[in-house]
Write a protein that binds this DNA or RNA. Structure first.
Length: 198
DNA sequence: GCTAGGATGCTCT
DNA sequence: GAGCATCCTAGCC
């Protein structure tokens, strides 16, 4: 059993939170069963000074949870196919979020395999869409409070003494170094020392 | 092993 | 009506 991170943790700069989430555990206690995984990759997003952010053009119906209480989940659909899971960051009222990009599966691995339809553990959650599907996250989770069960990130850090690699974010035309991942971890979503892509 | 391209639906212009 | 914070399959080395 893990202890959820408090709201204060999320009420900080996105890049700090993203880096600080590495090595902690994302937990989802669903009706189907419990799944969890170690966070090995995350990206930081900001607001109106960040062209890659959904909040770049101000508040809309879709992105309004980014302006709300930190520590809540921001889930949205990409390409009509994939759900992406973010955690809202920054002090309340200032838009910001951290996109969870990859997990190393920990508990409920069989349930993840069933939800994903693949058996290779390296492919279960190595990518934001895959992660959401393996964890059973969908649009119903948009706006839920992640400082308590059933969906939360642990205060405990399971990975210790790892190196953090910083790169530009993936799939966006913005070269700022806002992507963070665990060096050498096989479950990171892209090669250069990470998991296979397909 | 690798790469290219299609799927698919909602938001904002 | 375009453009995505992506994933998977087929087809080719």
């Amino acid at each position: 059993m893990w202890t959820p991170l408090s709201r204060d943790f999320y009420s900080r700069d996105s890049a700090q939170v993203a880096r600080d989430l590495l090595g902690r555990i994302l937990v989802h206690e669903s009706s189907e069963g419990l799944t969890s995984g170690i966070i090995v990759e995350a990206e930081a997003y900001y607001g109106e000074d960040d062209p890659a952010s959904h909040a770049y053009r101000g508040m809309t119906e879709r992105n309004r949870v980014m302006y709300g209480e930190p520590g809540h989940a921001y889930v949205f659909l990409l390409y009509g196919v994939n759900h992406l899971l973010n955690v809202v960051t920054m002090p309340r009222g200032i838009p910001g979020a951290v996109l969870l990009r990859a997990l190393q599966p920990l508990e409920g691995v069989e349930l993840m395999r069933r939800r994903r339809g693949v058996s290779d553990a390296l492919l279960l959650a190595s990518g934001p869409g895959r992660l959401s599907k393996a964890m059973g996250i969908d649009l119903n989770h948009n706006g839920v409070d992640m400082t308590k069960p059933p969906l939360y990130i642990s205060r405990e850090r399971i990975l210790k003494d790892f190196e953090v690699v910083v790169t530009p974010r993936i799939g966006v035309r913005d070269m700022r170094p806002l992507r963070f991942y665990v060096k050498g971890n096989l479950y990171v979503s892209r090669p250069k020392g990470g998991a296979p892509r397909a």
